[in-house]
């Protein structure tokens, strides 16, 4: 279980999260919803330790990981699929995936589920990551996160800016990772329909804090229009 207690987070002098509290029960997909710029990405980056500074407690299975450097959080079982994918264009697909293995400890290898989920990647292991399309790069970023052997996967708008035929594949693979591997997933999502289909619970973010949360069944149209409509 990942729990955040009164977390504040900062970029330089500007505060991006304000007293944010929230919990993600084990084995659930939690949808992080809200308009652009309210702090959803910052929330994930704060959990990963990638903002300039943060305060408050970030608890993973009884351990306060909020005081750890980023690499130790990754080794504690948190993997990050960032916005914009951030794969390394001149590394081969294999090296990109194996990069995640530094968080897993021991010999680095490609997770067993990757060939099932993303056969295209397995057929092109020696090509550079940069030649892939956006959707394939997203798959690569997910494969890399899986190589971290995570307990919790942080995914930042995994289907944003991706061609429609791959969106479905990626959505299905996210649901499979949760149902079959039991991965806890924090899913930042703009697509409410997909969030309702995949997630067990949600957290609505506004002005750097959680303004509503609960089981996904309690995500009413009223909440959506109040906090997400533009």
């Amino acid at each position: 279980m990942l729990t955040l207690h009164n977390v504040n987070s900062f970029y330089g002098r500007s505060q991006a999260l304000h007293d944010l509290s929230f919990e993600a029960p084990d084995g659930q997909i939690v949808a992080i919803l809200g308009r652009n710029g309210v702090g959803k990405t910052t929330l994930l980056r704060t959990i990963m330790g990638l903002t300039d500074r943060s305060e408050g407690r970030i608890d993973l299975g009884g351990q306060d990981i909020g005081v750890l450097p980023t690499f130790a959080r990754a080794r504690a079982g948190i993997a990050y699929v960032p916005q914009g994918r951030m794969i390394i264009p001149d590394f081969t697909i294999r090296d990109n995936i194996l990069m995640g293995g530094f968080a897993a400890g021991g010999a680095r290898h490609i997770p067993e589920i990757v060939p099932e989920l993303f056969p295209y990647l397995m057929d092109n292991l020696d090509r550079p990551g940069g030649v892939l399309s956006g959707g394939q790069q997203q798959q690569l970023a997910i494969a890399r996160a899986l190589a971290c052997k995570p307990k919790i996967l942080l995914m930042d708008e995994p289907t944003e800016g991706i061609q429609p035929n791959i969106v479905q594949q990626i959505e299905d693979s996210i649901i499979r990772l949760n149902r079959e591997l039991g991965l806890t997933i924090l899913l930042v999502e703009q697509n409410v329909d997909f969030a309702k289909r995949a997630a067990a619970s949600f957290a609505m973010v506004e002005n750097g804090t959680v303004v509503a949360s609960g089981a996904i069944g309690t995500l009413t149209d009223d909440l959506v229009s109040r906090h997400m409509a533009i």
Binding site: M48, F71, Y80, M86, M99, G100, G101, A104
Partner: peptide, 8 residues
């Protein structure tokens, strides 16, 4: 940043 997020 990504290197750190991968446990390096």
């Amino acid at each position: 940043q990504m290197a750190a997020a991968c446990g390096i």
